[in-house]
Design a protein around this nucleic acid. Structure first.
Lengths: 348, 348
DNA sequence: CTTGCATTGAGGTGCGCACCTCAATATGAC
DNA sequence: GTCATATTGAGGTGCGCACCTCAATGCAAG
């Protein structure tokens, strides 16, 4: 039989009360007693029964995702995955919520984060652009005991928070490698489009992309980044103009997670010139375009995995538990028409 | 507060005992009572507290991985991930074991599976080649109430068991697409190497690979499969001969999960001819070769994910629970030098 | 009507732990 | 030595459920 706390007390030569004090880090424990218990834990291989702990604590965990209001299909996908997790975790006394707030004004974001009550929320996963205000607000949240996850966002990594998401430099490099090798020997220019280059992740992807193109594909030249500001008209205009000015364009790389607007503009202005197209994120749009062979490859990070990982991390932190690092690493996926995961509605 | 079984009994207008009978599918419940409880569950949103269930049942789950004895680095990686999961699940009253048995004789495998005691093991994840004997043994296991997972193996899928692993046709197709596009316009031949073509997964990968090469890259020709039988000398010989006979070879595709032997042979015989190289599975060997740019791309399925998924599935089946299908789908990963996950030894 | 069986309810026990109180003892400062 | 404080032990309660027993009721066949 698996040893219980009672067995542990016996093995350590102390009372159950002292074992409880040690296990739950309560005050008034002598170093000697603590040592005796720690030694006995090792010796008899005691492991707390998480089910019993959960039942006895009878605590409800409350985690919240803070996401942007704007956004197109990828954000919708993310919200769907949050809802899915919310449903799945209902049984585990875990309340999962999501709020969307405008990210344009850092002060507003910071204000929202600051208003979060430490004993109304156990953990927050924040997807917000880098800014000193947000950064400070996150640090203060951590100090108040709220577990913070920097979620899929190009923020400078905080020491005291966890990060869930990919390495955007590597993602850009991967896009660069795929682009370079798919284009082949044909020399020419690569059009790079982003919603905005104000975001740290866009910058990192661009740097990664250029590092590969410059080092390994000298016959290719990546053009200055075009910024659409998520505006269809503007996208149409600048993309059309860029294609006109650069008739030797051989590829398009869309940095942002929403590729619908820029790529629609590209296809409108493309004429019959063959283009290798690389985009980010698996959305209904990008999936369909892969199937239609209008996008050649998609660099993606699985939003479902990201959501679950953020929740696992917040839960583990709340319980002062360790977690399996390898499970929490978000992979940089390369999606082609051939390995596109089909979304099934039916069960397993 | 979250409703408990007591609340449910009240809402349904029955006793706790009847609620218990319904929830645990015990006999002697009238259809009327069952209906009343089911209705009340919906109405008050009752969800069983899994922690309380686990504690009250106080059951230990025993799951076993049945793996081949032979195998090189990928198998070692798989075993390491099983050990990791074993350690992680120790807290959850779940005993994870792994056994390695020779897979060459189907009768022996079947005999081993048949000998598995239904009340010594709750679930088995089997990685074994397709054979009628094994197939029958698995079916009998299912009938005896043991949950069965067909694990990373090219078996015909059983209706009554779960499958964990990738679609090997799609994996081959992905390899074909990457190969074709990486090679570019240069016409030539592709050498295809496998440990054996007796395995269903090798056949499926080959079919997927050829389907893409034939349809989309008519200037390329994939050569008949070479079988190494995991024999270094034999591999060296047949690969050297094939390269001599086909000086216009432009690429190598290694179908099997162990690429070390065939690729070492290729590199010995390659001379200075440039080859695009595609292999399967992320191993220390393939990772190093990617870094050294001696392999261009690796098609992989994450063994850690596969192990965890198999365990989640067996656990859910044992509890008659539903599970999140999207989490259990194993992705066909495309690994390049640029998006290679670095294995960190430190925690998160 | 009686017999037999199916159904239901009441109640108890235990799973392993967290959390609490109160009394008893140890340890230190003075 | 005395006092204050730190440490320890004993014991109880409850978390939500599974599983068990036993008595009570219902219902149908004969």
């Amino acid at each position: 039989m698996r040893p219980t706390a009672k067995d542990l007390a016996e093995a350590a030569g102390v009372s159950l009360a002292t074992v409880d004090r040690v296990l739950n880090e309560r005050p008034n424990v002598s170093p000697k007693a603590a040592r005796k218990v720690a030694e006995a834990i090792e010796r008899i291989g005691f492991v707390r029964n998480p089910a019993a702990v959960a039942l006895a604590r009878n605590k409800t965990y409350r985690f919240r995702f803070v996401l942007p209001t704007s956004g197109d299909q990828y954000l919708a996908e993310l919200l769907a995955r949050v809802r899915e997790a919310k449903e799945a975790l209902r049984a585990d006394s875990t309340e999962v919520g999501a709020v969307q707030i405008p990210m344009s004004d850092p002060h507003h974001v910071a204000k929202y984060l600051t208003a979060i009550d430490h004993d109304a929320v156990d953990g927050v996963a924040v997807m917000a652009p880098e800014s000193p205000q947000v950064r400070d607000a996150l640090l203060r949240l951590v100090e108040r005991g709220v577990k913070v996850v920097q979620f899929l966002s190009g923020q400078e990594r905080l020491e005291s928070a966890d990060y869930v998401g990919i390495d955007n430099f590597a993602a850009g490099a991967t896009a660069g490698k795929i682009a370079g090798r798919f284009i082949g020997a044909r020399p020419g220019k690569i059009m790079v489009v982003a919603e905005t280059m104000m975001a740290l992740d866009s910058i990192q992807r661009r740097l990664g992309f250029d590092s590969i193109i410059n080092a390994q594909f000298p016959h290719l030249e990546s053009l200055p980044s075009l910024e659409t500001y998520a505006d269809e008209k503007r996208a149409d205009l600048i993309i059309r103009r860029t294609l006109q000015h650069n008739p030797d364009t051989v590829a398009v790389y869309v940095l942002s997670s929403e590729a619908r607007v820029p790529l629609t503009a590209v296809w409108n202005a493309q004429g019959d010139r063959p283009l290798t197209v690389i985009a980010h994120e698996h959305t209904p749009f990008s999936a369909q375009a892969l199937m239609d062979e209008r996008i050649d490859a998609v660099i993606a990070q699985d939003p479902g995995h990201a959501v679950r990982s953020a929740l696992r991390i917040m839960r583990a932190r709340a319980d002062h538990r360790e977690l399996l690092a390898s499970q929490e690493r978000i992979r940089i996926e390369v999606l082609l028409k051939e390995n596109l995961p089909l979304r099934k509605t039916a069960g397993l």
